[in-house]
């Protein structure tokens, strides 16, 4: 049973379409409270990443009298081994984590989509060659390689980190996009576009890509969470230098220096970054749920 409710439509210009699209996005997000919560959480982290470091002095103040202080009004998550406020550490550490996540997601999705699309659309020899390359990428053991790389490269910039994680991680997206392309290119509207002699640029950019948009957006969001885990893990393992304020570094210090697993004093120091990671992931997962409806006009307007 389908029930179609026609929305008020006026004009066909690009501006109208764009306005209708954003109105639709808003409608989709409002449909479930969980989505709004996700948007709120992600927005909070985005603000944290953008403006967090401005709230605090460049060198966070230490308080030698309050090492591993328990949570209090002044220090909601207590303090660390030097008496620095844990909340301040989490807030200032967000930028590195988020920038890495975004850079990784962007590179993963851009490379994966481009390679998957090209392979699936061209098929034949290109497909074979690109898919062997993808297999190679999937077969690279990421962690050991990073361990080796970290001996020569310090990853001081989050973008460098993101570049490496991105270059290691596009294989899965490429495979998925290729299989989507292969099934989409058999669809009537792609064939019709070819029959009309429309340029490949149009077919790929205007017909194929928009049809895969929910899929690509989902992959992008999930890549962000993957990248967050990966880098936090690396810092936690201590293979990277402790130069930057970073959630992973915090975890490492809490567990290996603070003994958070054995003494309760350092527990808030351990839990605060964990909570941040959990919350960020939750926010993203809650938004992923809306992607299908956002990019499908039928679901968007229903």
């Amino acid at each position: 049973m389908t029930v179609t409710v026609l929305p008020e439509v006026a004009g066909t210009s690009r501006a109208t379409l764009r306005r209708n699209f954003w109105r639709g996005v808003w409608r989709v997000l409002r449909r479930k409270p969980s989505r709004m919560a996700g948007v709120g959480i992600v927005a909070l982290f985005a603000l944290m990443g953008a403006f967090g470091p401005l709230l605090y002095p460049a060198n966070l103040p230490r308080d030698d009298n309050a090492l591993y202080a328990p949570p209090s009004l002044a220090h909601p998550f207590g303090t660390d081994f030097e008496g620095t406020d844990v909340l301040a550490l989490v807030v200032t550490g967000a930028r590195y984590v988020l920038l890495t996540g975004l850079a990784t997601a962007f590179i993963t999705v851009a490379l994966g989509t481009a390679i998957g699309l090209f392979a699936g659309f061209r098929r034949g020899r290109w497909d074979t060659a690109l898919m062997r390359l993808t297999d190679l990428n999937l077969a690279i053991p990421g962690l050991p390689l990073l361990l080796v790389l970290s001996t020569v490269w310090k990853f001081t910039s989050p973008l460098e980190m993101g570049l490496v994680l991105g270059l290691l991680g596009w294989g899965g997206v490429a495979r998925a996009v290729r299989s989507q392309t292969l099934s989409l290119r058999e669809r009537g509207f792609i064939e019709a576009a070819r029959g009309l002699g429309l340029p490949t640029r149009h077919i790929v950019g205007r017909e194929l890509l928009p049809s895969m948009a929910p899929y690509i957006a989902m992959n992008m969001l999930i890549a962000v969470t993957g990248a967050v885990y990966a880098q936090v893990g690396l810092f936690f393992l201590g293979v990277l230098p402790f130069e930057a304020n970073n959630w992973g570094v915090m975890l490492n210090l809490a567990v290996f220096s603070g003994g958070a697993l054995t003494t309760p004093a350092a527990l808030p120091y351990l839990l605060a970054p964990l909570l941040a990671i959990l919350l960020l992931t939750l926010g993203i997962v809650l938004i992923v749920d809306a992607m299908d409806e956002i990019f499908n006009p039928r679901l968007r307007e229903e």
Partner: peptide, 29 residues
């Protein structure tokens, strides 16, 4: 030559791109 021979697909549900308005669909060709 073949552009002047156009195929009408069996399935009008898959022959139109669901993400594009009719205006966009006709505009490109």
């Amino acid at each position: 030559y073949f552009r002047r021979i156009q195929l009408i697909h069996q399935d009008p549900y898959s022959a139109l791109n669901p993400t594009r308005t009719i205006h966009q669909t006709l505009e490109a060709p």
